[in-house]
């Protein structure tokens, strides 16, 4: 046996000259690729704490110059950003709660082979991935339900994502054995009790995947807020970011005290780098730890394709 294993590893490590060249080029290529992906993110971090004039003149490349926290100070004084943050946290928590509850319940029901009509329901749901009434008819429904300018407009119309429903259903089908249900039924266990007491405790990984998928979607979404909200007090963080980053409207309170227009522009740029970091902080901190759940979720979904 050991000899066999040794032969195997010898086989794998036998390298022709061509393979060595291949490996070298491959390593160089993938390293360059990683740098191309990570450098813009790294640059934002160093630019957000550098002297805005150095950034403007192109003196900042690899490390911060003339370290200053002025950008962050101005950001932390701005009420709009904090209101946006608070709103986004609220929408994300409530929205994710609704999403995950509905998705898990429906996905479990659809995973049961003894559910009469389950193919009909699946077709009904999956069809909406390929054809929809479109923006205007959907907007009119939300409007007629009186949800415009309330947080429910951001939550209820996005209550269940078909893709996540498929992912959760696939998970239940492949991890909850039929025998478990049979024996629970023998003991007189109801479906609700079985779902709450046996299925859910066995499904922690998929719950984590669902929470993360939905939470990131809520955190990043801006379009629903753009069309359904009118009141600025209800704006989520992404809409505030849009006005600062894209519409270039760093509010008067943020740069109003700076005298020249040129200096105002430079500080506005500094603020832009800062808000990107502030908005991404929760995800940046969590990302290395939760990455594996995202990958898992993406893979469960692809089995069914």
């Amino acid at each position: 046996m050991t000899q066999f294993v040794m032969n195997r590893s010898k086989l794998w490590s036998r390298k022709s000259k061509e393979d060595k060249i291949f490996d070298l080029i491959n390593l160089l290529f993938l390293t360059t690729l990683s740098l191309v992906v990570i450098y813009p993110l790294y640059f934002i971090i160093i630019a957000s704490i550098s002297n805005p004039d150095s950034v403007y003149n192109g003196d900042v490349w690899f490390w911060p110059k003339g370290v200053t926290f002025e950008g962050y100070e101005r950001i932390f004084q701005d009420n709009r950003i904090w209101t946006g943050y608070k709103n986004t946290v609220l929408y994300t928590v409530v929205g994710t709660l609704v999403n995950v509850t509905l998705t898990l319940m429906a996905a479990y029901a659809l995973s049961r082979k003894d559910l009469v009509g389950r193919n009909f329901f699946m077709i009904l749901f999956v069809f909406t991935m390929f054809f929809s009434g479109g923006l205007i008819p959907t907007y009119l429904v939300v409007k007629n339900l009186g949800m415009v300018d309330t947080m429910w407009a951001l939550i209820i119309p996005k209550a269940v994502a078909v893709w996540n429903l498929i992912v959760a259903r696939t998970f239940f089908q492949s991890t909850i054995p039929d025998e478990l249900l049979e024996s629970a039924k023998m003991d007189g266990c109801s479906n609700t009790k079985f779902f709450l007491k046996i299925v859910l405790p066995l499904s922690k990984p998929i719950i984590a995947v669902m929470v993360l998928f939905y939470a990131v979607t809520h955190w990043n979404s801006f379009f629903d807020a753009l069309i359904y909200l009118n009141n600025e007090d209800k704006y989520p963080l992404q809409l505030i970011l849009r006005s600062i980053l894209i519409q270039n409207e760093a509010s008067a309170s943020m740069v109003g005290d700076v005298e020249s227009f040129a200096a105002q522009q430079r500080i506005a740029d500094l603020i832009k780098y800062g808000v990107i970091i502030v908005a991404a902080i929760p995800l940046l901190i969590l990302y290395p730890f939760i990455q594996k759940y995202f990958v898992k979720g993406a893979l469960i979904g692809s089995i069914k394709g």
Partner: peptide, 16 residues
Amino acid sequence: FLLPTLIYFIVFHYVP
């Protein structure tokens, strides 16, 4: 279990 999701799809996908 399925009912809320069914209502959701009817109201926000099939009504549009």
